[in-house]
Every structure is written in structure tokens, then in C-alpha cells.
Design a protein around this nucleic acid. Sequence first.
DNA 1: CATGAATGAGACTTCATTCAT
DNA 2: CATGAATGAAGTCTCATTCAT
Lengths: 243, 243, 243, 243
Amino acid sequence: MNISEARNKTRERLEQREADILQAATKLFAADGFHATSTRKIAAAAGVSEGTVFHYFSTKNALLLAILDNFYADLTESAREGITEIMGTRERLLFLAENHLRLLLDNQALMMRLIQVYLSVDPNYFLDYKSTHIHELNYQYTRIFDGVIREGIERGYLDPDLELSALRDLFFGGLEYGMRTLLGRKSTDRVATYVEHIVEPLWQSMQVGGNGDKDTTITTAQRLEQACQRVEKAAKKLEKATR
Amino acid sequence: MNISEARNKTRERLEQREADILQAATKLFAADGFHATSTRKIAAAAGVSEGTVFHYFSTKNALLLAILDNFYADLTESAREGITEIMGTRERLLFLAENHLRLLLDNQALMMRLIQVYLSVDPNYFLDYKSTHIHELNYQYTRIFDGVIREGIERGYLDPDLELSALRDLFFGGLEYGMRTLLGRKSTDRVATYVEHIVEPLWQSMQVGGNGDKDTTITTAQRLEQACQRVEKAAKKLEKATR
Amino acid sequence: MNISEARNKTRERLEQREADILQAATKLFAADGFHATSTRKIAAAAGVSEGTVFHYFSTKNALLLAILDNFYADLTESAREGITEIMGTRERLLFLAENHLRLLLDNQALMMRLIQVYLSVDPNYFLDYKSTHIHELNYQYTRIFDGVIREGIERGYLDPDLELSALRDLFFGGLEYGMRTLLGRKSTDRVATYVEHIVEPLWQSMQVGGNGDKDTTITTAQRLEQACQRVEKAAKKLEKATR
Amino acid sequence: MNISEARNKTRERLEQREADILQAATKLFAADGFHATSTRKIAAAAGVSEGTVFHYFSTKNALLLAILDNFYADLTESAREGITEIMGTRERLLFLAENHLRLLLDNQALMMRLIQVYLSVDPNYFLDYKSTHIHELNYQYTRIFDGVIREGIERGYLDPDLELSALRDLFFGGLEYGMRTLLGRKSTDRVATYVEHIVEPLWQSMQVGGNGDKDTTITTAQRLEQACQRVEKAAKKLEKATR
DNA sequence: CATGAATGAGACTTCATTCAT
DNA sequence: CATGAATGAAGTCTCATTCAT
């Protein structure tokens, strides 16, 4: 099988090349930003010539798009996989959050999401078609969260009247907003702890009938007591002011 | 007062010019992105020559910095002001959220935040000093949220063991993550509704003893609460007036 | 004398201003070079506004010209003065050299001469008229050297057949070529020593009887010399060829 | 040899391009000065696009550096070559001087030397490394003069106590100081004559017994003695070579 | 006379992309 | 398929000079 063997080798080499370019570009975009990374640098980092980069990706933007494709593929696949092996809703959310952060932090790819957001708004950089494409990827990925919540509702653990889209925004937005703080102190512990702190409030707010089991006794009496204090304080101020 | 009049006029014109440039740049950065906006375009949009732009702002980056400065000043001031006139913690959060969104949406300035984030991470674009400066502004602004929560805790309504930084991340991250969806449909209602959906879960998770008894206890407690608010407000105003 | 007093004061202030600008520009041109010094820097260093600089000097080039004027005035005057107080030709040359070096080194004004030379060739920067002007200044100054030599000849100490222009080139060229080495180690001793080393060879070659006996001795010695050369050349060639 | 032929052609064309740019830049720098020559002009004169200039030379300064490199290479090589074919010290100096002048005048490259000097002093334009590089080139070149003098001393014709560095300064400084006068009247005669006038005084001052009062006794006897030694040496070499 | 805001030409350089080899 | 030389448009920024105040 001389011919087919040769073809196989060729194909492998081609795929390797493409992967090299993709990887080099990802690393550089993540580290320096999209605009600060020239195609020349990418070619050099990938060990190919400038022309070759354009052989595989018609455009610098196409390259970015391919990276985002890959990235979302990773994100979505790992998320889906993990979900199937975990049953509890809360545990699933913790996993989703940690997986999200970890993949973003792994190759400092925080920049990736930012660029994506960035470009998705920039009208000069992406035609509607492509922009839509990225949105679609993002949609597919974030709906995994929706699925988890829905299943929780179906099982009767979560409040059926939850505002899903808002929770989704809080979940992913919160994770990414805080991510900057985590850059650098990449220790596993930190990530796990941070993830809990983010998920906990959401989890509490989701449950059926709130979480009334916490010490309810204090409530009324204490609140009244404190109200008294406040009125007294205000009275004092009023006295002062009118003196 | 010939001289001083003339000086005033001159000063006004200068400030006007600076404001024009700032405004033009803000609009363009917001619409097209930082990199896609050339200094030439900014100059043209501001009705001045390119050289003049650099007369007022030594660098394109300095211009961006000035814009962010202004933006944060607006954000911080309007937030602080609004807070003083509202007493309830929940109401304050709603205001904070709506104010945040509205200012960002107002001049399509979504891009502003993104750029800020973008730059604050890009190591090649900002020296430590400047990066620190932006961080400081962001810090000052977001701590207003902290203050609101802390006061809520002091008054006894919120759980003293709250994970403040996580809540902050959820609050601002959630708002900005969902903002993209709101771009375009800028109607007041939508924003108000969206804001409620974002704040509600957080609010629920914050309260002492969860919110199990909420529906029943509200009546008496809330009436007292609102009375307190009225007294406090009056006291504050009086204090201000007599200072 | 109210009016004339006022006029005096005004005149003084104007002259002071002009001098300030001149001095600032000289220092900056010397330190950073003509092209690297902007009119803005000059104005700042002189403590005046940019417009004022152009009030006193119509052009940046005119400013340079004025500086060179001043510089040559200093050079020429100090040289002439010094000469009158010294009688010996050798001593005069030593003085001339030291004076030259010292003035150039004083405010690191080496650059001045270079710029002058530089510009005197640059056809785009100086019209013929101005270029000629600088040449004239240089001419006037360097002729002082000529005068010293001529007087030495008249007194019978120097060979009347000296090639004056070549000696002049050697004198000033030698001084300035070596000046770079002296920048930095500005100690008096070094300059004095260096000056002697430059003047000594010239002085030797100038004196009467310098090579008077040459014509006679040449015959035998030179014949032998030429024979040596022929043999050596042959040896070298042979050596090369057989290597 | 299809491939290697093609490669050769390609390489040739590339070298031609580089040479074109180099030549165009040299001519323009020489004619108009470094600062007055824009990269656009250079590109136009070389018949390439502006981008191509930067393809070959990363910077305008790098281009200048390359020119100086080439220039010094020419200067040094031609000087070394010429020296080997001339035996007499005086003749060597005459050659060195004429060669120096002729190369500088050839492509009006006077400006080259000036720029070099200019830059070597301007602290803002060249980092230590590059400045050092140019100094090194200059050092290598000027030491050829030293070698000639040293050999003259060894042969016994020149005073062993000569102040070498001062003579070097006089030699090159004198040549360049007078060069301006020669620009334009480039006739061979003039150059030759001028060179003699510059070398003659130096030559006289160098010789043993220069100005009679120093130990004159040695002269004749010693010269003959040394001539004998030289002939013997040459004879030895001849013997060796013919063996 | 003094100011300094305003100008706009032009400088150097970068970069994505093309195409002949 | 792979190369890398070539392109030229566009970008940011500087600067000498002018002019209204």
C-alpha cells in the first residue's frame, strides 16, 4: 500500500502543521492579545513560514475563529462529559464552574473570551455570519448550564419559577469577572474555593422555598430590636441637627 | 473685567475642545473598538486637526485613559449620590445595578469596560503604573457595592458571614455578561426588569436566615422598616441642610 | 528720565531674553544634537513660550546661525587677544590650540563644529548666502593661525616655503579629530599635554633648515634605501607565492 | 542543476536588491544628510517599495550602520592591500592619505564620516553596543596607520619616541579638515598634491634626528648598519622561499 | 511684546496578504 | 504544498511655524 501509506503520512504532517499553527497562535493571542500578535510572530512560533500560515488559514481573523472553535469544542465537550458522571445539581454546577475556570486559566486563555466578546461587538471585524457563528458556539456551551438547572427543577429540588437567563449571566459573568483576580495564583485550592463562593449564593437562591431551615427563630424579635435601634439613632441625629 | 472675561472665554473654548475630542473618541472607541479607531478619525469627528488631538492627549493610550477616568468618575459619583437617597439595601442594589447598566448602555460604552478589562490584562500595553491606576478606579467604584452590603449587615438584615468578593463578582460580572443581550433593546422597562432578575437571586442568598418566613413576617416588619427609612431620610436631609 | 529709564529696562529685559534662548539652545544642541532638539524643548529650557523663540529668531536655523555667530565671535576674540600677549611662535600655537580645545569642550560644544560642518554641506538646509556667512566666520578665525605663521616667517624663524593651508588643516583638523578622545577627561593637564603633542610635530616641520641637508645626503642613503625596498618587495612576493 | 541554478538566480537578485538600497541610501545620505533623507526617498531611489527597505534593514539607523560597515570594509581592505605592495614608509603614508581621500570623495561620502562622528557623540541615537561597533571599525582602520609608523620605527628610519596617537589625529584630522576644500575640484592632480602637502610636515617631524639638536651622531652610520640588517633579513626570507 | 493653541505635512514603521519560485 | 520576498496602505506621533488674543 505504497500510495495510501504515503497519503497517510502526508495527511498526518498536514494536520500536525495545522495544529502547530493553531497552538502557537493560541498561546500568543492569549499572552499578548490579538492585535499585538503579528502573523509573522505566529509563523515563527509555529516553525513555519508566513506564507504557510495563510495556506492553512485564509485570514488572521479566520485563524482566530478556528481557535475559538477549538476552544468552545473543548469547553463544551469537557462540560458535557463531566455532567454525565455527576448526579447532584449542586455538584454539577461546581464542576461546571471549575471546568470553565480551569480551561480558561490553563493557557492563560482568558484573553480568548475577551477577544471573543470584543470582536462580537466590533462591527468592522466580523461579518454577521461569522459573528453569528461564535454566538452559536457560545449558545451551545452555555445551554449546558440551562440543562443542569432544568433537570434540577424536574427532579423537584429547584424552584420552577427561576429566571434562567439571569442565573446563567450571573454564573458565567461572575466566574469571568473574578477570574482576573485568580490569574497568577493558579493553585488548585484557590480555584476550588473560589468556585464554591461563586456557586453558593446562586445555589441558595435556586432552591424550592428558599432554605428556611436555617435558624428562623431570631428573625422577628431581632428585626424589631434592630428597628428600635435605628429609630433611636435617627432620633439622635434629628436632635443634633435641630439643636 | 476685560482680561478675565477674555480668559474665561479662552478657557471655556479650551475645555470645550478637550470635551469634543473626548466625546468623539469615546463614541468611536465604543462603536468600532480601540484598535479600529485611528487618531485621524477621532480628529475628524471632533472637528480638529490630528495634531490638536495630540496637543491635548500626549498619546492615543493617554486618551483612552482619560476616557476611562471620566467614565469611572461618572459611574462612581452617580452611584454614591444615588445611594445616599435610598435606604433599603435591596433598593440600593437595584439602583446600583440599573445605574451601572444605564451608564454603560448610554453611549454604547460597553466597549469601554471591555477595553479596560482588555488592557488591564495585556502586559504590553500598560505599564504597571497606569494599569494600577485603572485598577484603583475600578476598586473605588466596586467598593461602593461593598459598603452597601456592609451597611445591610450592620443593620442586621444580611448574613454577616457573606463572601463579599464573590458577591461583588457575581453582581458586576452578571450585569456585564448579560449586557450584550440588552444592547439594542434599550427600553427602560427591559433594563429595569433585567436588573431585578439579576439582583433577586443575590438578594435572596444574602439575607439572614434565608427567606423562608418572608411572606408572613413582612407585613409588620416591613411597615416598621419603611417607617425607619422615612425617619432616616429626613434625618439625613436635615443634617445636610444644617451643616 | 522716566521714559528713557523704562526703555533701558525694556531693552535689558529683551537682551536678557535673547541671551537666555541662545544659551538654552546652545546647551541643548551641544548635548543632544540639532535635530534631536525641538523648539519646544528650547523654549522650555529658556523659560519662555514657543512663540517667543520665534519672536527673536525667525527660524530654528536662524537660531543655530546666531549660535555659531556667537561661538565664532568668542573663538576669534579670545584667540586674537591671547596672541597679542605672547611673542614666541611656538607658544602662540600652543595657546591657539589650547584655547580652541577649551572653548569647544567647555560647553560640550563639540557638536557645534560638527553641525556647522554638517550643515555647510547640506544643500537643503542652508542657502548659499548663509552658508557663505559661516564660511566667512571660519575663514576669519582660521586666518589668525596664518598670521602667526607669517609673522614667524618674517622674523626668520620659520621656513618661508611652508604650505600654509596644509598646516592649517593639520592644526585644526588634528585638534578636532582628537577632541572626542578628550571628552570626559576634561582635566587641565590632559588638555595641555595633548595640545603639546599636536603642536610639536608641526612645529618641528616648520623650522628653517628643517630638511636643508636632505638634498645632499639623499644620494647614497636613498640609493641604498631603494635597493632595500626592491629586495624586500621581491622577498614578500616570493613568500606569498610559496605559502 | 535546475534547483541550484534557480537558487543562485534568486540569491543574486536578493543581493542586488540589497545593494541597490544600500547604494541609493549612501548617495542620498551623502548628498542631503541623514535627517533630510526620508525612507520614502530611499525606496524610490532604489526602485523598491518603502516596505522593502524595511524588509532588508530593520531600521533607518540599521541602514546607516550597514553603510558605515561597508564603507569601513572598503576603506580598511583597500588600505591594507595597498600597504603590502609599497615598502617605503613615506610612500605608504602618501598612499594611505590618497586612498582615504579618494574613497571619501568618490561617492561624495564625506557626509558618511561626519555622520559617523555625529552619531558617535550623540547619546540619544546610538546605544552603547552600536556606538562601540562603529568605534571598533574606526579603530581597526586607523590602526593601519599605526602599523606603518611602527614598522618605520623598527627599520630605524623613524624616531622611536613618536607620539603615535597625536600623529594619527593629525593625519586623519588634517585630511578630513581639508577635504571640504577639495569637494568639487576632484581632479587627480589636486588630490595628489594636497596629499603631499599634508603628509610632508608629518613625515619631516617623524624622522630620526628630526631637528638636529637631538643626538645627530647616530644618523649615517646607524642607517647604513640598519640597511645591512634589512638586506640580510630579506636574503634569509628569499633563501627560505626558494628552498 | 508674549503667549501657547492649532496646524498639517511628513517621518518612521508595522502588518496582513499575495505570488513567483 | 511551502516559502519568504515584496508590497503599500495605514498607523501613531513629532515638529517647526503661525496667529489670534
